[in-house]
Computed example of a mutant assay.
Amino acid sequence: MKLVRMGLIGFGVIGSNHARYLGNGEVSGAVLSCICDINPERLRLAKELYPHVKLFDDYRKMIASGEVDAVFVATPHYEHPPMAVEALKNGLHVLIEKPAGVYTKQVLEMNEVAGKSDRVFGIMYNQRTNPVYQKARDLVKSGKLGEIKRTNWIIDWYRPQSYYDSGGWRATWSGEGGGVLLNQDLHQLDLWQWICGMPKRVRAFCYYGKYHNIEVEDDVTAFVEYENGATGVFVTSTAMTPETNRFEIIGDRGKIVIEDGKLTFYRLRVPERQFNREYDGGKIAKPECWKCEIPVEPGQGGQHREITQNFVNAILKGEKLLAPGIEGINGLQISNAMHLSSWLDDWVEIPVDPDLFYEKLMEKIHGKN
Results as ranks from 00 to 15, higher is better:
residue 276 N to M: 14
residue 226 Y to D: 13
residue 246 R to D: 14
residue 276 N to W: 06
residue 193 Q to T: 12
residue 234 F to Q: 07
residue 290 W to L: 12
residue 279 Y to P: 00
residue 190 D to E: 12
residue 249 I to K: 11
residue 205 F to N: 15
residue 188 Q to C: 09
residue 295 P to I: 00
residue 237 S to K: 01
residue 196 C to Y: 03
residue 187 H to Q: 15
residue 287 P to F: 02
residue 184 Q to W: 13
residue 178 G to K: 00
residue 207 Y to N: 12
residue 225 E to S: 12
residue 209 G to H: 04
residue 206 C to P: 04
residue 202 V to Y: 06
residue 185 D to Q: 14
residue 288 E to Y: 05
residue 209 G to M: 05
residue 209 G to V: 10
residue 257 V to S: 08
residue 179 G to S: 02
residue 257 V to D: 01
residue 200 K to M: 08
residue 215 E to Q: 15
residue 219 D to Q: 10
residue 257 V to F: 11
residue 276 N to C: 10
residue 265 F to Y: 07
residue 213 N to F: 06
residue 219 D to E: 07
residue 177 G to H: 00
residue 186 L to I: 14
residue 243 E to K: 10
residue 270 V to K: 08
residue 201 R to I: 01
residue 196 C to E: 04
residue 242 P to N: 09
residue 295 P to H: 00
residue 245 N to W: 15
residue 201 R to T: 05
residue 267 R to K: 13
residue 193 Q to G: 06
residue 274 Q to V: 12
residue 227 E to M: 01
residue 259 E to V: 10
residue 252 D to M: 11
residue 213 N to L: 08
residue 205 F to C: 09
residue 275 F to K: 12
residue 217 E to Q: 09
residue 273 R to V: 02
residue 209 G to S: 11
residue 214 I to E: 07
residue 206 C to A: 10
residue 230 A to E: 03
residue 264 T to I: 01
residue 283 K to F: 15
residue 240 M to S: 13
residue 201 R to L: 07
residue 260 D to V: 02
residue 211 Y to R: 09
residue 254 G to F: 00
residue 266 Y to G: 01
residue 244 T to G: 06
residue 281 G to L: 08
residue 194 W to K: 07
residue 254 G to P: 01
residue 207 Y to F: 14
residue 177 G to T: 04
residue 279 Y to M: 08
residue 209 G to D: 10
residue 294 I to P: 00
residue 182 L to H: 03
residue 183 N to C: 10
residue 260 D to T: 08
residue 280 D to V: 11
residue 220 V to G: 09
residue 280 D to F: 07
residue 272 E to K: 10
residue 281 G to S: 08
residue 273 R to F: 04
residue 221 T to K: 13
residue 180 V to A: 03
